[in-house]
Amino acid sequence: MNVFRFAGDMTHLISILVLLLKIYTTKSCSGISLKTQELYAVVFVTRYLDLVTDFISVYNTVMKVVFISSSLAIVWCIRRHKVVRRSYDKELDTFRHWLLVGACAVLALVVHEKFSFQEVCWAFSIYLEAVAILPQLVLLQRSGNVDNLTGQYVFFLGAYRAFYILNWIYRYYSEQHFTRWISCVSGIVQTALYADFFYYYFISWKNNSKLQLPA
């Protein structure tokens, strides 16, 4: 464990706590893409298949349980919670996210570290996470103004993988055999997808104005 990875994990945790806070306090999921949340649930379930078979550390296990349970809880909230579900922007959240799932599945079958069920699922989850934010970014562009908590949620979600890139650089220089190209390339693509959001987020922060993404 290094400081970059710990900061990344904490930033990721904060993004989830901000989203839970928004849904819990406002009892609303307006501006939140259910499709992105469903993709994240798939990402965590397919990535942490080794949750019960491969014990790394208490921290690792606890964080995996937190990520899986929170992502499933958020999907449940938006789909089933009698109050929250009413504020779901169903007509705006129309990204065909199952296409992303299909494309990542094909890519994982072609590019993986080892051809085993667990490794292919792991590569699939890495690729899917890189593009999982797309339905959310599209929804933000369509829904015009973005409320603060939603903006902060996306910001922390984008920032966490940037910390992971620093972690991979650090591990590359500090550990002999460390190469993790699949994670690294996907992580760079993932962070790049947030580039324009970060730009508009910075502008809105500098001008102290409402976050507006151009349509």
Partner: peptide, 10 residues
């Protein structure tokens, strides 16, 4: 050790 080093990231 190898497997431990492999997937120790979240």
């Amino acid at each position: 050790a190898q497997s431990k080093a492999r997937k120790d990231e979240l």
